[in-house]
């Protein structure tokens, strides 16, 4: 398995772990009361805003740990350059990722139109965001593994 394939798998696992742990922590703080109260909107706004820096910091830490373990286990350094194949893989993976998020965004809007509570829209947005990240990482792994 190449360095890029291992990195894709680590990214995939890290996004699942970070979202699961963060959601499990935040869900305990979900405000009681009406589904349409200002506290609910405040909660979801904070959920997204805090998730961004938490995700960035957690990914940096996981990446450093991966880099160290990978160097010790395989004695293989990170490729020093990003060549045309890497850019093409990244582009195709981003495209797949974007498709998934676009579908999720439309579903979130549909949820509002059919009268579901705002929480449903936010949950669909979070799920589609996570799913799009996962599809991006899986696509990268697939393209590096199977070629294109």
């Amino acid at each position: 398995m190449s360095y890029q394939e291992r990195r894709s798998l680590v990214n995939l696992i890290s996004i699942i772990l970070i979202t699961a742990v963060y959601s499990a922590y935040m869900i305990q703080r979900y405000p009681a009361g009406s589904a349409y109260s200002p506290e609910v909107f405040h909660f979801w706004g904070a959920f997204f805003l805090i998730l961004i820096p938490v995700s960035v910091v957690a990914r940096i830490i996981i990446y450093i740990i991966f880099h160290i373990i990978n160097a010790i286990a395989t004695r293989e350094e990170e490729p020093p350059i990003t060549d045309e194949r890497d850019k093409l893989v990244e582009l195709k993976a981003s495209q797949n990722s974007l498709y998934v998020f676009a579908v999720g965004f439309i579903l979130a809007m549909v949820a509002l139109v059919v009268g579901m509570p705002p929480a449903a829209m936010f949950i669909i947005l979070i799920c589609s965001g996570v799913a799009s990240e996962m599809v991006g990482d899986i696509s990268q792994f697939y393209f590096y593994r199977r070629g294109f």
Binding site: S2, Q4, P79, I81, D83, E84, R85, D86, Y144, G147
Partner: peptide
């Protein structure tokens, strides 16, 4: 040629 070894392998 200015690419990674993995690209030559592929």
């Amino acid at each position: 040629v200015g690419v990674t070894r993995q690209t030559i392998v592929a």
